[in-house]
């Protein structure tokens, strides 16, 4: 995806979806440093409500295992809404089996990051998402 450029008037919006406050805080900081306007949600259902409230987001990082609605269900639900087709969805999860990566992509996720991750991992994945590689 196109990362924000310094000095642009509208900052792109990101939603960090994770039931761990610590993980949300780490990803929030990384994305805020990249000039995103960052919002948070604790599960998939909260995330869908937040996206409706905001009128859409440019990027969402999505944990897999969360209460109420998990990350895969969230991706599937969001991808049924054509108005959010342009939202870049990056799974950020402790799941590392090939089957999980495949299922996430099939459901409509753009990228997959395995925890633990570093700032550079997130940055590289955002650069590569939608690059045509």
């Amino acid at each position: 995806m196109n990362l924000p450029e310094q000095g642009t008037t509208r900052r792109p919006r990101a939603l960090v979806i994770d039931d761990s406050r610590a993980v949300r805080s780490i990803i929030r900081q990384i994305l805020a440093d990249l000039s995103f306007e960052v919002h948070e949600a604790e599960d998939g259902q909260q995330a869908l409500a937040k996206i409706d409230e905001l009128g859409g987001v440019d990027l969402a990082t999505v944990d897999w295992n969360m209460p109420v609605m998990n990350g895969l269900q969230f991706v599937e639900a969001l991808r049924t809404k054509p108005e959010h087709a342009g939202t870049c969805l990056v799974m950020v999860t402790t799941e590392t089996d090939m089957d999980y990566v495949r299922r996430a992509l099939e459901a409509g996720a753009d990228e997959f990051v395995m925890k633990p991750f570093t700032r550079d991992v997130i940055l590289d994945k955002l650069n590569i998402a939608g690059s045509g590689a």
Binding site: T96, M98, A104, E111, F112, M114, F117, V121, K125, I128
Partner: peptide, 20 residues
């Protein structure tokens, strides 16, 4: 390693060209 495939490799390439 997991950290190495996390860096810059598109997930679709991981699925298509790698085995665990």
């Amino acid at each position: 390693s997991q950290l190495e495939v996390n860096r810059g490799l598109p997930a679709k390439y991981l699925v298509k060209y790698f085995d665990k």
